[in-house]
């Protein structure tokens, strides 16, 4: 392929594509629409690799990727680990329970130690919003945010956008409803940024205590009326109720949540027959979604998992190529 190219290297960027230039992936809020599109297009290419019988390619050979998960996570960690392995990187998993963070070491010192071992990429999951941004102030490696507090979960927002685009062919002009615990959800925030930047109309719905009107300032529609939120949606993205993040109880009980906002067969009648049903997982069957809807033909929940791998491969690939010029 391209063997007839003249002096230009064959891997050179086509004129229409803006090359990736960032050292880190910290959030989606600060990305331009072109950055988002580049990641999604790259992920589409990588998805094909995961469908091959031999699922490993060499671009990150010799690179060291560290999964630094200060807050527990299984699915995101596994997805990032597999993504790095499929690109031939060496992967170290580092969890807070078994680390020096337990012995009083600061996050900054932990990261400086990892960098002293010449880590190339640090994937950070942290309970504090802004933790990856803090690391980016001094990091020489590439930082990828795998979820920080209630702030952002960029790769989840990207994989949701990827899944929507794959099914609907576009994102611009689509009506997307995000339903559930918006206030404590980093998934919601990353989704909101990605979808708004790519031209979708975003509606947020859930109990008023978890879906405050302040989100209208993002450019979203806020409604507490479930039927109104579901009726014209092209995509319904359900969020898990994050009991663990709530310091005070903001709604009476899970049972009441299910009664008022759970997606059941009766409420599915309000949903367009070609609307996608999405959920970032782990799903609580019978709480925010009835089991047979999660398994139904409008559900793309497992495709989201598959696409997450491709999106994380794309992010690792592009971030590795990002310049480290602004390192301090």
């Amino acid at each position: 392929m391209n063997s007839n190219a003249t002096a230009t290297p064959t891997g050179q960027t086509p004129a229409s594509v803006t090359p990736w230039s960032r050292q880190h992936l910290l959030d989606l809020q600060s990305l331009a629409p072109e950055d988002l599109t580049l990641i999604l297009d790259t992920a589409r290419s990588f998805k094909a690799i995961n469908e091959r019988s031999i699922k490993r390619v060499p671009p990150l050979r010799g690179k060291t990727v560290i999964n630094l998960f200060v807050e527990p996570s299984t699915r995101t960690r596994i997805s990032f680990e597999l993504a790095a392995l499929r690109l031939s990187a060496d992967v170290i998993n580092f969890s807070a329970e078994a680390s020096s963070l337990k012995k009083g070491e600061t996050l900054r010192d932990t990261v400086r130690n990892l960098e002293a071992l010449n880590a190339d990429v640090i994937i950070l999951r942290h309970g504090a919003s802004g933790a990856p941004h803090y690391l980016a102030r001094f990091a020489r490696s590439h930082i990828i945010n795998a979820g920080d507090g209630a702030h952002e979960h960029p790769t989840q927002g990207l994989l949701d956008a990827f899944t929507i685009r794959e099914h609907k062919g576009r994102i611009e002009g689509l009506k997307v409803t995000i339903l559930g615990d918006i206030l404590f959800s980093r998934v919601a925030r990353s989704n909101i940024w990605a979808l708004l930047k790519l031209g979708a109309h975003v509606t947020l719905c859930g109990p008023p205590t978890l879906v405050p009107r302040v989100f209208e300032r993002f450019g979203c529609r806020v409604t507490w009326n479930l039927e109104e939120a579901l009726r014209d949606a092209d995509v319904v993205n359900l969020l898990r109720v994050q009991h663990e993040r709530q310091r005070v109880t903001l709604f009476p009980s899970l049972g009441e949540y299910t009664a008022l906002f759970g997606l059941n067969q009766a409420r599915m009648k309000w949903v367009k027959p070609d609307a996608l049903i999405m959920h970032p997982g782990p799903i609580n069957r019978g709480v925010e979604i009835e089991g047979d809807i999660a398994d139904g033909n409008q559900s793309v929940i497992l495709e989201q998992v598959t696409n997450g791998l491709a999106v994380r491969m794309a992010v690792l690939f592009l971030v590795n190529g990002g310049r480290v010029a602004d390192a301090k």
């Binding site: 392929m1 290297p9 064959t10 891997g11 050179q12 960027t13 086509p14 594509v17 090359p19 990736w20 230039s21 580049l38 297009d41 790259t42 290419s45 990588f46 094909a48 690799i49 091959r52 390619v57 060499p58 671009p59 690939f317 592009l318 590795n320 190529g321 990002g322």
Partner: peptide, 21 residues
């Protein structure tokens, strides 16, 4: 066979156009 990912002039910052293997 698609050889894009095995190239020695692969540009990480841009979109790799992968085709089926």
């Amino acid at each position: 066979i698609d050889v894009t990912m095995h190239r020695d002039d692969l540009d990480w910052r841009s979109l790799p156009e992968l085709r089926p293997t």
